[in-house]
């Protein structure tokens, strides 16, 4: 691990690690699994569809991490949002279903944000607690039952539909990445997020409203998790308390490997997208290789460990 880190320092690999990792994994699976259907258009499209929710969660997490905070609760937000949306869709028209899902996400983000930004509680502990809190609420909401989503406009819009042959999940991914990238890279808000995560005191004395920035990043993350919940509900045509539950590690890994700093001040949306696609490809390949679930977990854990070790090594630290 030390040698690997040194090598990566020498070649200044850190900023490209996600692209190199993506290519290496792709080539590896293309060679070893070429005959098992890895390269078929169907499989590749499937990877893109499966990663849509994680990519969107990753976008939200980039904002949070870049601002020097963390959100562990987004997985629970996904479940609560998806359930809220599914329940409302059972009785109300489309618009209210969407509103319920997104609104719940933003509201939980707001709740996290108040505690983190204005009461100055550490976001790690706040969201560790709200992760449990909302996971519990997701379970009680429908007594562990899954809720079917029968509204076909909804399932087209957030699941199986397509526009000019492009699946709607891919369109959502492209749209969210484009918007996220624009806001993060091109606006004052993005600059303030980075400054806040980098040196909050410097940001504060420079006139940046640091608490407001912290509040907003938690809300952005909640909104992204809410949208991810809608995409899960749309694709699976049902909502269940388990949605998003197992995405925590995948999303954090995607974002960190993508080049966002765990301690703030640095982030990239495009890197997070590629990181998320890489994680999706990894999951897909390991399944096609016929590994058992436990072996998949072990291999995935090891690969994440290597990638994170390389990403976190910085030339000047």
């Amino acid at each position: 691990m030390q040698k690997l880190a040194q090598l990566s320092q020498k070649l200044n690999l850190t900023q490209y690690v996600v692209y190199i990792g993506f290519l290496l994994i792709f080539v590896f699976f293309a060679i070893t699994l070429g005959d098992d259907g890895f390269l078929t258009q169907r499989n590749l499209v499937n990877i893109a569809l499966q990663t849509a929710p994680t990519t969107i969660m990753a976008i939200g997490l980039v904002f949070v991490l870049a601002a020097g905070e963390i959100d562990l609760s987004f997985g629970s937000i996904v479940a609560v949002s998806a359930l809220a949306s599914a329940v409302v869709l059972g009785e109300q028209p489309l618009f209210f279903g969407i509103l319920a899902g997104l609104g719940v996400g933003v509201a939980i983000g707001f709740f996290n944000g108040i505690l983190v930004a204005y009461l100055r509680l550490p976001s790690f502990l706040v969201t560790l607690a709200t992760m449990g809190l909302f996971a519990g609420i997701a379970r009680t909401m429908t007594d562990l039952r899954s809720v079917p989503v029968l509204n076909s406009t909804f399932t087209d819009l957030f699941g199986s539909g397509s526009l000019f042959g492009v699946p709607s999940l891919v369109l959502w991914t492209i749209g969210a990445v484009a918007l996220g990238h624009f806001v993060f890279r091109e606006t004052k808000f993005g600059a303030h997020v980075l400054a806040t995560g980098d040196n909050p005191r410097a940001a504060q004395v420079s006139g940046i409203k640091v608490p407001r920035v912290r509040m907003l990043v938690m809300m952005v993350c909640g909104a992204c998790a809410g949208l991810a919940g809608l995409l899960y509900a749309g694709r699976l045509q049902s909502a269940r308390y388990t949605l998003g539950e197992s995405d925590l590690m995948t999303v954090i890994a995607a974002v960190i490997i993508g080049g966002t700093a765990l301690n703030g001040g640095k982030g990239t949306i495009i890197g997070a997208l590629v990181g998320s696609l890489m994680m999706g490809m990894l999951n897909n390949g390991l399944i096609l290789m016929g590994l058992s679930v436990s072996d998949q977990m072990i291999v995935r854990g090891l690969i994440i460990l290597i990638a994170v070790a390389i990403s976190l090594r910085d030339v000047n630290r």
């Binding site: 980075l194 400054a195 980098d198 040196n199 005191r201 410097a202 940001a203 004395v205 700093a261 001040g265």
Partner: peptide, 8 residues
Amino acid sequence: DLALADEQ
């Protein structure tokens, strides 16, 4: 302490 954002 200069109040600079080091990563920017």
